[in-house]
């Protein structure tokens, strides 16, 4: 409890920060701003796709606001917001807090293998016994993500599989 600053002090700092909130400096580095174009493309792309795919919806009757009104509104909205993000983020800059942490090469490799294991696990889900594939998947996950000892690669998956088996199959009666 003592390692915390007194409440008043926090409040005072907060108040100052709040008062100067709008002056937070923006990151204006070109790569950071160009990266924002990805977000813009995502908005424009999805918005356009909604408008195009919305043409396939069957419209019956004459009611105000039929089945296409709502999706069209959202598609147009996405395109509009995409345009605003160009003005706001690409041309002006990004708040420092919004620049994400860098992706590491080892992280990317770990991610790739993890996803591959996930998909393999799912494809075998209804084919093999739950506890076999879960044990193997858990062992592979642990191995990929950095566990090396025999406890990590064998004992941990065994215990977790047992817990999962008891919880879902025995207690919740999930047909796994």
């Amino acid at each position: 409890m003592t390692d915390q600053p007194p409440i008043e002090e926090i409040d005072q700092d907060a108040a100052i920060e709040a008062a100067h909130h709008h002056e937070e400096p923006l990151v204006r580095d070109l790569p950071v701003r160009l990266r924002e174009l990805v977000a813009v493309v995502a908005c424009l792309g999805l918005g356009t796709w909604i408008l195009i795919a919305g043409k396939d919806i069957i419209v019956r009757g004459s009611a105000e606001l039929g089945p296409v009104f709502w999706p069209n509104m959202l598609g147009a909205g996405l395109i509009l917001f995409g345009a605003v993000i160009v003005l706001n983020n690409v041309l002006r800059g990004v708040r420092k807090a919004d620049v994400p942490e860098r992706i590491t090469a080892s992280g990317l490799a770990m991610f790739g293998v993890t996803m591959a294991v996930c998909i393999g696990y799912l494809l075998l889900w209804n084919v093999l016994q739950f506890w076999i594939i879960t044990f193997v998947a858990l062992a592979l996950f642990t191995l990929v993500l950095g566990g090396r000892s025999w406890k990590a690669v064998l004992a941990f998956p065994a215990v977790t599989t047992a817990v999962l088996h008891f919880l879902f199959i025995v207690a919740l009666r999930v047909p796994l």
Binding site: I57, P67, P71, F81, N89
Partner: peptide, 26 residues
Amino acid sequence: FKGLAAGAFGLFLATVGRDPITGDQR
């Protein structure tokens, strides 16, 4: 603005499926 775009995306996800009034696919 990114929040509003995300919101529109969420609202769009909710339109996927059968139209609540006419029952046609969207």
